[in-house]
Amino acid sequence: MDTYSVIPIRFTLNGDKVSIEAGAHETALTVIRERLSLKGTKEGCGMGECGACTILVDGKSVNACLMAAPQLEGRTVMTVEGLGREGKLHPLQEAFLEHHGVQCGFCTPGLLMSAQSLILETPRPTHKQVVEAISGNLCRCTGYQQIVDAIQYGADKTGGEE
């Protein structure tokens, strides 16, 4: 369909092995959203400024809009769809629900990924660490406080489970 060079890419996405072909010019975000039809990851700016496209690559938060698709090769990727599911929310998701950290929800998937990345590294983050970890995720609705509270609370619960 297009004339760009196409590269085969294999990686693990939310626990499943995937193997696709993507254009060298494509971003990880278009691969996830358009090729793999996982629409939970959002595009708010396409230039690394908003964090709506945040995913986890080998446990680290990454702006998918800035990552070239071929860089996914061999990596382990998680999107919001891999965090929890209906009836069994991840403790972070539970915490967002309880602390009313969701308004329009457009920033939510990216924030959950940044939070998860933080917790993987720092199971009991301080308030300051939470704020820093999500400083690349813009939210225009909430003023962040209910989100920060949710992440701290969710971290506690996650830690408690482990």
């Binding site: 009313h100 929800g105 939510t108």
Partner: peptide
């Protein structure tokens, strides 16, 4: 709609 939003749905 909050649960759906948390699941990216």
């Amino acid at each position: 709609g909050a649960i759906e939003r948390l699941l990216g749905k």
